[in-house]
Amino acid sequence: MIYAKRILAFFLFAVFLMAILLAASFVFMPKNNMSEFGMEEAQANGILGEKENTIDVLVLGDSESYSAITPMQIWKDAGYTAYVCGTSAQSLNYTSVLLHRAFEKQQPKVVILETNAIYRKISSNQAVGTELANYFSVFQYHNRWKSLGLHDFTGKAKFTWTDDYKGYRYRTKVDPARQKEYMKPTDKAADIPNLNIQYVREMKQFCDENGSRLVLVSTPSTVNWNFQRHNGIQKLANDIGCEYMDLNLMNDRIQIDWSKDTRDKGDHLNHFGAVKVSRFLSEYLKETGLLTDHREDPAYAKWNDSLKKYETAVEKA
């Protein structure tokens, strides 16, 4: 009897705890997706402010993704709407969260996963932390206790803001790469942590179930990429039946000039490199035949406004 009582007490304790955490999460969740409201990774979360079912291409990944892919160039070239949900040092557990979050309002036909994140080890602390934050946002936004207002206790979250650059981070600095011959052929394949393989598998399955095509893309980087890594991803792509493009091996088409197109010695591309990669991706997306050109569609007029702002900034630079 006493055991049954204790088990019941423990169960009640857990239920109340979850209720309290849910209530706290409601209070601590930013009520808007702008960084001024406390939203973390606001640029990546700008997708939450996009009109429902208007995004054609979702890009996920770490800093390589938001440095190498500029959605406005794709819009300008092909009229497809892309959004980069890239964050610094993104690990796949968070990638998975962003993927699911994006699909709550969007139905992108193509999902591009930049492959550098696939090699990033995920600690258990990180994995559990991200998972907890996904269910109870108080774990992610707990630090907002410093700026809580009355509205946080009563108001509902309304995500109205979106990024005019669509997650892309515009950088024009040039810092040439020294190492240019970084893709020396080899048969060796770099090891991918098992947990990461599992995450990619789950993402593939999720995309399949939602009628999206998952494409693995390795954007050019002399610092982060090599042939062993290429082989590792190729093997993974073959195993899960996924398309893979290594842009590091396609420079005859992309024409990255490592003396001009990188901002930090080959680690990341700058804007000039990003334009080249995005033009290539526009062509690729056209070839898939999956997407429609929305440039003349009035429902997408805001994208043309964003393009104007983007081009003004680029011209100024």
């Binding site: 955490l21 706290a24 601590f28 707990h142």
Partner: peptide, 24 residues
């Protein structure tokens, strides 16, 4: 039991909210 639960919840919530973890 109410007081005991409240003590646990206070400890847990104080760690969750005021703990120095996460970004930054």
């Amino acid at each position: 039991v109410v007081v005991r639960f409240a003590v646990y919840y206070a400890l847990i919530l104080s760690i969750v909210i005021f703990g120095a973890y996460g970004s930054g």
